[in-house]
Computed example of a mutant assay.
Amino acid sequence: MRNFIRIQDVMKKTGIARSTLWLWVSENKFPKPIKLSPRITVWEEEKIENWMKEKL
């Protein structure tokens, strides 16, 4: 089963600021989020962890 995390949790996990996250998403440097509703956006936790492993 996939775990989804919100932007606050992504920021805590990666140490990256909100504006930088969105910039990197737009530049395809960070995993794309999933839009659940107009006000709820989530990321797959596994994709964030894999991205972090690639950057180390």
Rank of each mutant, 00 (worst) to 15 (best):
M1H: 11
M1Q: 06
M1T: 04
M1V: 08
R2W: 00
R2D: 04
R2C: 00
N3Q: 15
N3D: 15
F4V: 09
F4T: 09
I5F: 07
I5Q: 09
R6N: 03
R6A: 03
R6W: 00
R6L: 03
I7L: 04
Q8R: 15
D9Y: 00
D9A: 05
V10P: 03
V10A: 08
V10F: 03
M11H: 00
M11P: 02
K12A: 15
K12R: 13
K12H: 11
K13A: 10
K13I: 13
A17E: 13
A17V: 08
A17P: 01
R18M: 06
R18A: 04
T20E: 03
L21D: 04
W22I: 11
W22E: 08
W22D: 07
W22K: 04
L23D: 06
L23N: 11
W24S: 03
W24A: 03
W24N: 05
W24C: 09
V25Y: 04
S26T: 09
S26D: 15
E27F: 01
E27P: 02
E27K: 00
N28W: 09
N28I: 02
F30P: 01
F30S: 06
P31L: 11
P31K: 10
P31R: 12
P31I: 11
K32A: 07
K32H: 12
K32I: 03
K32F: 02
K32G: 00
K32V: 06
P33K: 04
I34T: 11
I34P: 10
K35F: 10
K35I: 06
K35H: 12
S37V: 14
P38F: 10
P38T: 15
P38L: 14
P38K: 12
R39A: 12
I40V: 13
T41K: 00
T41N: 02
V42Q: 00
V42P: 04
V42D: 02
V42S: 04
W43I: 07
W43C: 14
W43Q: 15
W43E: 13
W43A: 14
E44I: 10
E44Q: 15
E45W: 05
E46C: 06
E46G: 13
I48L: 06
I48N: 12
I48R: 13
I48T: 13
E49M: 08
E49G: 06
N50C: 09
W51T: 04
M52S: 08
M52R: 06
M52D: 05
K53H: 04
K53I: 10
E54Y: 00
E54Q: 05
K55C: 12
L56P: 03
